[in-house]
Design a binder for these strands. Structure first.
Lengths: 93, 93
DNA sequence: TGAGGTTACGCCTATCGTAATAATG
DNA sequence: CATTATTACGATAGGCGTAACCTCA
């Protein structure tokens, strides 16, 4: 699993469309499609249903989405916590 | 930032020692050392103090540790949530 | 037959491990 | 001078983009 996979997964879940997700991510479609499949392979579970109209989340995908967002959010918070720390690093001892 | 960097960071924070962290991660020392530095570079902030005895967390590192663990934990929970879903995927519709 | 997703393939970047090097108490 | 971290370097693997292909209503 990789952070890119989580980002791609969330984007596709939100767009319901690999093409739009890729555009939003400023990446070509194939990487998104591949990483999505790799993620499903690793989890041993399909996360999306493929339809001629796009991608629809399956129940396992819905469940995973919650934690994918949580993980990405934690990382952003961590980044912010460290960045805000600039100037507070007096006590290096 | 990568998940490997987060794993490496947490291991080093817990071990206080790149060598032991690497052994625990079943990886050579250099990758751990490099990824740690890359992480610090990306965050624009030192996370550890280097001593001849090993590595000690600096305040920004302490702050980041909380969120790094949260992110990794969320991923594990996500994995579990999907895995447990096996057999519950009746309503694919 | 058109909209959308996937596979093939070549290139490029990133990461690893071994070995050598630096730093510090 | 021993312990620990870092840098050099060659080899490998992973990921991207373009282009071609498949599928289904």
């Amino acid at each position: 699993m990789s952070l890119a996979q989580l980002h791609y997964f969330v984007a596709v879940a939100e767009e319901g469309h690999v093409g739009r997700a890729a555009a939003r991510l400023r990446v070509a479609q194939p990487p998104v499609s591949r990483q999505l499949r790799a993620l499903e392979d690793e989890l041993g579970q399909a996360l999306f249903e493929r339809t001629p109209r796009g991608m629809r989340l399956l129940p396992p995908g819905e469940r995973f989405l919650v934690y994918a967002r949580a993980a990405l959010s934690a990382i952003e918070q961590g980044r912010a916590a460290v960045t805000e720390a600039r100037g507070t690093r007096g006590n290096v001892q």
